[in-house]
């Protein structure tokens, strides 16, 4: 089938089998190997990319489902040699050990801050529960996200969305 998709602001067209997974399309057809294949079972989040602006696990999306969509991978964050604020946060806080989970972590964490620009530590940990670090280097990952939040806050940050900041379990209705 014909697939037309924009990846990191570049338009692509390819003939693909319907069963081709988005992660394999990105890695094997486009050569964008920053998106990693980890568990392949929708658990680890190493294959996280942004699909029309929201993070998804590319091992559990068919490439053809992205027809007409905009995809952003880790390779799309750096602009003119300058790292994105979250990448810079991971750099400055040593938010990685082996680095395998890092692309997914960074993309999921960016989305977390887009929805909740000033998260608490617990909200960062909860918000990244779709991404596993086999090195268990979570402390520095959390530090990196909080650092990036602070830096982003120093520049212009959008107002927090009520949905993203509401306390869980506030289930009473009048």
């Amino acid at each position: 089938m014909k697939l037309a998709v924009t990846v990191n602001e570049k338009a692509h067209e390819h003939e693909v089998e319907p069963r081709l997974l988005l992660v394999h399309y990105l890695r094997e057809v486009l050569g964008l190997t920053g998106t990693h294949v980890g568990c392949e079972t929708t658990l680890c989040g190493a294959c996280t990319v942004l699909l029309d602006g929201v993070p998804v696990k590319a091992c559990t999306v068919l490439a053809i489902q992205a027809d007409g969509a905009k995809v952003v991978t880790i390779e799309g964050l750096e602009k003119d040699g300058v790292l994105d604020a979250m990448q810079q946060g991971f750099w400055e806080c040593h938010g990685l050990q082996c680095g395998f989970c890092t692309p997914g972590m960074i993309l999921a964490a960016r989305d977390l801050l887009d929805r909740n620009p000033h998260p608490t530590e617990d909200q960062v940990r909860g918000g990244l529960d779709g991404n596993l670090c086999r090195c268990t280097g979570y402390q520095h990952i959390v530090d990196a996200v909080l650092h990036a939040a602070k830096k982003r806050g120093a520049s212009a940050a959008p107002a927090p969305s009520p949905a993203a900041t509401a306390a869980p379990g506030a289930g009473r209705h009048a």
């Binding site: 696990k57 999921a108 289930g171 209705h173």
Partner: peptide, 29 residues
Amino acid sequence: IEDSAAVRAACPLFSEVAGRIGDRQIRNR
């Protein structure tokens, strides 16, 4: 569903359940 302020106001159980499924990437799909 998780993000809808109108759902949260009218039926907080739906918001709560939506927000506790899998993880955010899974909830986006």
